[in-house]
Measured scan of single mutants.
Amino acid sequence: NQASVVANQLIPINTALTLVMMRSEVVTPVGIPAEDIPRLVSMQVSRAVPLGTTLMPDMVKGYA
C-alpha cells in the first residue's frame, strides 16, 4: 500500500506548503504520493485543505 500526502492541519487557500503541514498516511483513495513531499514544499494550495484531507494533484498549484 502506498502512502499519500495528508494535511496535518487546516491549510488556507493560497498557502505555501511547509513540511509541518503534511504527513504521510495510507489512505483511500490514493492522493499525491508521500515521496513527493519534498517537491511540494513552497508550492501553494489552490483551495482550503481541511485537517486530515488527502492532497490530490489538482489541489496544489503547479504540481500536476
Rank of each mutant, 00 (worst) to 15 (best):
S24K: 08
L55Q: 01
R23M: 04
R23S: 06
L10M: 11
L17D: 01
S24I: 12
D58P: 08
Q44T: 14
E35W: 10
G52L: 05
V27N: 03
A48Y: 09
P50V: 05
S4D: 01
P38W: 08
I13L: 11
E35G: 08
G31V: 02
Q9V: 13
T18E: 09
S4W: 02
R39E: 09
M59H: 14
P33V: 12
M43Y: 13
P33W: 11
T28P: 01
V27G: 03
N8K: 14
I13H: 12
V6K: 04
L17Y: 01
I11G: 01
R47I: 15
V5Y: 01
D36S: 14
P57Y: 09
I11A: 00
K61R: 12
P29G: 04
P33L: 10
V6H: 02
T53I: 11
D58I: 11
I13D: 08
Q44K: 09
V41Y: 05
V5A: 13
V27H: 04
N1I: 15
L17C: 02
G31W: 02
V20K: 13
A48H: 12
P38D: 07
Q2F: 10
I37H: 03
S46C: 06
V49D: 02
Q44N: 07
N14Q: 11
Q2T: 12
P50H: 14
M56E: 10
T54Y: 02
L55N: 02
V41E: 04
V6S: 02
L40T: 00
T54M: 03
S24C: 06
N8D: 13
E25Q: 07
P29V: 07
D58Q: 11
M21P: 00
A34R: 04
T28W: 04
R23C: 04
T18Y: 03
A7H: 02
A3P: 06
A7G: 03
L19P: 07
A64F: 05
M21L: 07
T18Q: 06
I13K: 09
V5G: 01
V26R: 03
L17S: 00
E35H: 12
V5T: 09
D36A: 12
P12A: 11
V5W: 02
V41W: 04
V20C: 12
P57Q: 08
L40P: 00
V49R: 03
R47A: 11
L17I: 14
T53N: 12
S4G: 05
L17P: 02
R39W: 14
G52E: 04
P29E: 11
